[in-house]
Structure formats: structure tokens, C-alpha cells
Simulated assay, not measured.
Amino acid sequence: MMMGLIEPFLEFSFLRRALAGGIALALSAPPLGVFLVQRRLSLIGDALGHAILPGVALGAALFGLSLAAMSGGGLLAGLVVMLAAGLAARGGALREDASLAGFYLVSLALGVAIVSWGPAQLDLLELLFGSVLAVDDAALLLMAGTATVTLVSLAMIWRPLVIETFDAGFLRAQGGRGALWHLWFLALVVLNLVAAFQALGTLMAVGLMMLPAVAARFVSPTLSGQVVASVGIAVLAVLGGLIVSVRADVPTGPAIVLCAGALWLALLLAGPEASVLARSLRRPHLAR
């Protein structure tokens, strides 16, 4: 059975590249998802994932299936939507998440329209759901570079980001420039979504970020423990998703997200912390 599982990775180099890239993303994206969960901004990742589609589609329509063009366009589109939503929230009556909802719906529709107007070789399904065959050496370098930038950045801003997450008022009172850390953090979210779209697609990229982060809540009660647990869950999801993708001939993105979802459901039911099983076994307070 073990040989049957690892045989595809030994036989096909593109699977080894996809596994290496997936592990790189698993090291960087889920920790960001943990912070999004703690900040009650879980759906913002989904909104930004949709927001990069028009940039990716426009880059492909103008310059062909170039990784640099599609990644640059997606990064630019995501940053523009992020900044526009923030400015709209500060200048109007809507909260930032509501502003992002409006912008991401427009972005998604615009991206689909650009794909339909673009060249025939531009495959909408591949852009939306990803393809393991799309992970070439250039995409692998992008994923590895993104993971490096993200981990170094988190190490640099960890303390103010944690304080801004749990007590933004205290950080403002101390002159901590909370808006700067918030924008830096969201820029890292956009960067990881752009790096992930080659293998997971623009719609599925957020799954590797959020599902392990949500599942980690049932493993550890502490922030640092959830960050570590989310990375481990994401690595298992990437490995299982790639095997399912090859064996069942399904797109890579949905396969990885389904595996992450299965792990989340398992931990929700029987995880060591705050799961259904853990709550049922916990004795009532002060009970003898």
C-alpha cells in the first residue's frame, strides 16, 4: 500500500515539483489563516482569492500563459482591491469586510469576462481550480520564494501583529501603527494566494489557507500551537490531495481542499481540544 502511494512521486517529476511547492505553501499560508480566524476575518481570504482572478486573466490575455505576467497581474489586482476596500471602509459607512464583498464580486465577474474575451487557450477551469501540470520550475520557485518572504515577514511582525489581533486599542494607545501591520499582513495573504493559484486555482487557493487554520483550533488552544498544527494539517492535505488528484483524475485544487476538509471534519468530531468528543467527555465544572 505504501509503495502504491509513493510510486507516482517516484515516477513523475511534475508530481515531485507539485509536492515541493505544496509543502512550501503549507508552511506559509496556514499561519496567515490562523490570524485571519483569530481576527474574525475568515471570509476576507476568500474575497481576496476571487479578487486576483481579473489580474491573472488579463496578464494571460495580454502576454500569453506566462507565469510572471499572470502572477504580477494577480498580485496587482489583489493589492488594488485590498486598498480600495480599506479606503471605502474608512471613507464610508460600510465595514471593511462588506466593502471587500462588493469589490470581490465585481472582480470575479470581470475576471470571467476577460477569460471569455481572451485567447482560446486560456482555460477558465484551470484558472479557477488549478492543475498539477501547471507547477513547473518557475511556479515552484515562486512558491518557495513566497514561503520565504512570508515566514521572514511573520518573524519580523509577529509581536505587533499578535497585539493588534487581540487588543488593537492598546496598540493604538502605544503608537504602534496598527494600520501598517494590518496592511502588511493582508499583502502577505494576497501574495500567498497568487503563489497558490497555479496548482490550486484562484477559487481553491484559499482552501489551503483557511481549512487547516480552522482545523487547528481543535488541536491546540494557544496561538503558537495552532500555527504549528495548521502547518502539519496542510502538509497532510497536500500529500493526500496530490495522490487523489492522480488516482481519481480530478483537479488538484479541489482534491487538496477536500482532503483538508476531511481532516477538519475528523478533528471537529474527535480532536483533542474543543471537539464534539472532547466536549462530551469533559466533566461539568465542579462536578464530582
Rank of each mutant, 00 (worst) to 15 (best):
A26R: 05
F12H: 13
G55M: 07
L105V: 01
L142P: 12
F166Q: 11
I52A: 11
L263G: 06
G33F: 09
V231M: 11
V238Y: 06
A234C: 13
M156V: 03
R90P: 03
A199K: 05
D249R: 06
L154S: 09
G201Q: 00
R177Q: 14
A85M: 03
L75F: 15
G72V: 03
E164C: 10
G261V: 01
L265P: 06
L258G: 06
Q198D: 09
Q121R: 09
S107F: 03
D249Y: 10
W184K: 00
W117S: 15
L142E: 11
L281I: 02
P284A: 15
A101W: 06
L277N: 07
L183K: 03
M2L: 15
G33E: 11
G232C: 10
P54C: 09
R16E: 05
A85F: 11
A287P: 05
R159K: 14
G92N: 05
V231Q: 04
M156W: 15
L263I: 02
F197V: 00
L41H: 10
P221N: 08
G130N: 10
P119H: 07
G207A: 03
I52Y: 09
E96W: 03
L75C: 05
D123L: 08
I52W: 09
L140I: 01
I157L: 11
L223G: 07
L281K: 06
A234L: 09
R288Y: 13
I157N: 11
V257E: 13
G4L: 13
V214K: 06
W181L: 06
Q121Y: 10
R177N: 14
L19I: 00
F9G: 07
R247H: 15
L258N: 00
A248Y: 13
A93H: 12
A85D: 03
G118M: 05
L108E: 01
G240C: 03
